[in-house]
Write a protein that binds this DNA or RNA. Sequence first.
DNA 1: TGACCTGATACGTCGGAGGTCTTGAGCGCA
DNA 2: TGCGCTCAAGACCTCCGACGTATCAGGTCA
Lengths: 223, 223
Amino acid sequence: MAVTDEAIEKIKGMIVSGALRPGDRLPKESELAAGLGLSRNSLREAVRALSLIRILDVRQGDGTYVTSLDPQLLLEAMSFVVDFHRDDTVLEFLAVRRILEPAATAMAALRISEQQLDALGAQLDKLGDTPSVEDLVACDLEFHRGIVRSSGNSVLCSLLDGLSGPTTRARIWRGLTQEDAVARTLREHRAILAALRDRDAEAARSWATVHVASVEQWLRSTL
Amino acid sequence: MAVTDEAIEKIKGMIVSGALRPGDRLPKESELAAGLGLSRNSLREAVRALSLIRILDVRQGDGTYVTSLDPQLLLEAMSFVVDFHRDDTVLEFLAVRRILEPAATAMAALRISEQQLDALGAQLDKLGDTPSVEDLVACDLEFHRGIVRSSGNSVLCSLLDGLSGPTTRARIWRGLTQEDAVARTLREHRAILAALRDRDAEAARSWATVHVASVEQWLRSTL
DNA sequence: TGACCTGATACGTCGGAGGTCTTGAGCGCA
DNA sequence: TGCGCTCAAGACCTCCGACGTATCAGGTCA
């Protein structure tokens, strides 16, 4: 195994074992390199790799720190990877989202706060009846993110955030080519919100399923 | 933005745009560095980072290649990240698995082949009635992996594989401390297999839910 | 024909030299 | 006293050149 890979494993080990905790500062490059028995150049490769997946946070002029390791950071790393899977596997991503989104929406129905419900409503109102496709999709992302956050599961939230990315383009495309897509999306958002207000988990789940399935169905018929 | 980060983005762009396809070989380090306008050292940091998340495959003495970019590779990168989330967030991972696993099992019920059913049965038979906890958990992982693969969705398969990792320790712990955990797991596996043989998606979904929920319930009562 | 050797090629590692950015102590001014 | 500025130390950023090591292809020899 290359010395850089060893360094990655050792740093990972220090974090997993608890020797390094979230927010901790690592020794400076030269010291850490000496401690791990490799050159500064090779150590930098290890640090850079761990930095890409948000394990480490490198600040020039300051130092290198362990990130919070929040599951939310998992998302960002994942969405980077997901970016590489385009077109051919979008349907598979969408299928997974179709499983998770309704479940998350149902969970949210039981614990979303009144303030958050009002915020979601205000968001929909602000968009109006004839938004641009780009605005609609951006609002779509934000709407679902707000709901999923209320599910209380940050891992679920992160996964869905990561999964929503690659399908964004597809949704924009749909909005531009399918006549009633915009109006339909707006109606479904209203329906989901109404179900959440009623604390009706099953209705919320069903509307979320319909919502995702409509995109999936369109995409399947198009490809 | 640092030159290394720019290089990462540029390489990513070359792959996403299709200029570099899965399996393609990159120019050698010195040429690519010159082409991207940075030093070989800095470029190596970018390549190492992309190599960690399985976007690139570096072979000493040969060259650097774009990996297959299969969703399956997404899993390996994710499980590396997931390794950092221990104990405190295991319940959240398990909750997500509880959503995905039943759905995947239900999907598999509709399309799993007879050969795969036989293979799963043979696997359970081979384990016997009183396996060691380690063997059971290993078999557990393999059993569910075999089923999920039959769902036909490789993204789903990768995600579940990644999610199962962090809960493995918990399951071993459970097997060691809870009296009837082993027998119960064996019974539930048999029930899932029977439901798959019957092509009964709803029964398969329910048994899978029960199966994951039993681990979740135990863990929740223990923490 | 087949095993072995060898050179070319490409990645792996290293040490050192400047450059740039952040931070905080120290100083002057109001 | 309190505020703002300057500046030097510390830490990461980038690069260069050299040498080590692994792989592969082609030639050599039995």
